[in-house]
């Protein structure tokens, strides 16, 4: 009987502690879970990342007070997990040396009662991607620039045509 218990007790102990998902050791408690995060990437319009730029996040329920502050990494990236109980537009401002931008990203929060134990679990989903950049290809950018320049050249040509009728006036001016 006695020897039988000696073999069973270790299995009971192992199965009790093995059921716990928390790692407990010397007063450190850790918990890891999956959550929804927002990744921000900021770069200058010449493609350089905005490294170590200051990021300010505003929550939907208080757009005047910063909810989180931080800095981007060397690649201009900043990741944060929004408070899933707040749904609406999260505003993220990135600023460096008087340059910067604000982006609004909608987050839909689903509050659901996880019955019985009285805790509220919330799930959130980030709907879509917010962008302040105009995603033009280099060819499109060059074409747009060329049309703009052609507009200016056209204006110049138009007024040069007008000047020909005033050529006498110009000649008299240049003689003076």
């Amino acid at each position: 009987m006695n020897s039988q218990w000696k073999t069973i007790i270790p299995f009971v102990v192992i199965s009790v502690f093995g059921a716990s998902t928390k790692a407990i050791a010397h007063g450190v408690r850790m918990q890891a879970r999956e959550t929804q995060a927002i990744e921000v990437n900021a770069e200058y319009d010449n493609g350089e990342p905005m490294a170590e730029a200051q990021v300010t996040v505003y929550a939907p329920n208080d757009p005047a007070t910063p909810w989180l502050e931080g800095t981007t990494d060397n690649n201009g990236n900043f990741v944060f997990a929004p408070d899933s109980s707040q749904s609406g537009n999260w505003s993220i401002q990135v600023r460096q040396a008087g340059h910067g931008s604000i982006v609004n990203i909608p987050v839909e929060g689903n509050q659901a009662q996880a019955g019985g134990n009285g805790t509220t679990e919330a799930e959130s989903s980030v709907s879509g991607v917010a962008n302040t950049r105009t995603n033009f290809t280099p060819l499109q950018t060059i074409l747009m620039g060329a049309t703009g320049v052609w507009g200016f050249i056209g204006t110049a040509l138009f007024f040069m045509r007008g000047n020909k009728s005033n050529s006498e006036l110009r000649r008299s001016e240049s003689q003076r």
């Binding site: 620039g145 204006t155 110049a156 000047n163």
Partner: peptide, 19 residues
């Protein structure tokens, strides 16, 4: 005397400023 006379020059330099 002729305010339009300098517009071609101004327009071309606006293009330079633009790019």
């Amino acid at each position: 005397k002729n305010p339009q006379a300098n517009i071609p020059k101004a327009s071309l330099l606006t293009a330079a400023f633009f790019v």
